[in-house]
């Protein structure tokens, strides 16, 4: 069951998306867009948290996937 690594990949994707959003927020000069990007970065962060928790659980249940 290689779910562990898949979930981690997914997590990494989300983290990079969050970083992208934050950098867009910095780049744009449009105040409204800046705000929107920042809010969405927070939103994605909200999705990252439960996923991180899930990764910890998987690692706990199946230690052979630790570190993947």
């Amino acid at each position: 069951m290689p779910v562990g690594s898949k979930v981690k990949q997914c997590l990494a994707n989300l983290e990079s998306a969050q970083a992208d959003l934050e950098s867009f927020a910095l780049e744009t000069n449009d105040q409204a867009a800046k705000q929107l990007y920042a809010q969405c970065a927070q939103q994605v962060k909200g999705a990252i948290e439960p996923l991180k928790q899930r990764v910890r659980q998987i690692e706990h249940e199946e230690p052979q996937y630790r570190g993947y």
């Binding site: 989300l14 959003l21 000069n29 449009d30 929107l36 969405c40 939103q43 994605v44 439960p50």
Partner: peptide, 29 residues
């Protein structure tokens, strides 16, 4: 439940961003 929650949040962010990401700001400024 955890996966659903995470997916929901991502979808929500995506929905909010839609106007910004689609209307590529090639004319920005």
């Amino acid at each position: 439940q955890q996966y659903r929650e995470a997916a929901r949040r991502v979808r929500e962010a995506l929905e909010r961003l839609a106007p910004l990401l689609r209307a590529s700001d090639r004319f920005a400024g």
